[in-house]
C-alpha cells in the first residue's frame, strides 16, 4: 500500500492509503480515542462500525475511524481535544 501523510491533532503521521483510519492511529501509538460519558478512556472496540467507540473528527465531521479509509492530507482530531 502507498504511504500517505495525515495530520493528527496538529502532528503529521505516515499512514497507508486505503487502510482504515483507526489502524493508522493505533499504529502511530494513539490508543485513547475519546472519553466516555463517565470519563473513562475508550478505544477501538468492535472494529466494524457498530459500537461508535472509535469516533474522531475528520475535516470537521465526526466519523467512525474503523470504517473510514485514510486519505492523503486528512485532518484528524480526537473528540475530547
Amino acid at each position: 500500500m502507498k504511504e500517505v501523510k495525515i495530520n493528527v491533532n496538529g502532528k503529521d503521521i505516515i499512514a497507508k492509503e486505503g487502510e482504515m483510519l483507526a489502524a493508522a492511529l493505533l499504529r502511530a501509538g494513539y490508543k485513547r480515542f475519546r472519553k466516555s460519558v463517565g470519563g473513562e478512556d475508550r478505544s477501538l472496540f468492535c472494529g466494524m462500525g457498530i459500537c461508535f467507540e472509535c469516533l474522531v473528527r475528520v475535516d470537521g465531521r465526526t466519523v467512525r475511524s474503523c470504517i473510514t479509509p485514510v486519505r492523503e492530507g486528512m485532518e484528524v482530531q480526537f473528540e475530547e481535544s
Binding site: 493505533l26 478505544s43 477501538l44 472496540f45 468492535c46 466494524m48 474503523c66
Partner: peptide, 13 residues
C-alpha cells in the same frame, strides 16, 4: 478498557 477489543476488530485490523 483500551487493549480489550472484539475478536472481529482484531480480524478487521
Amino acid at each position: 478498557l483500551p487493549d480489550v477489543m472484539s475478536a472481529g476488530a482484531v480480524q478487521a485490523l
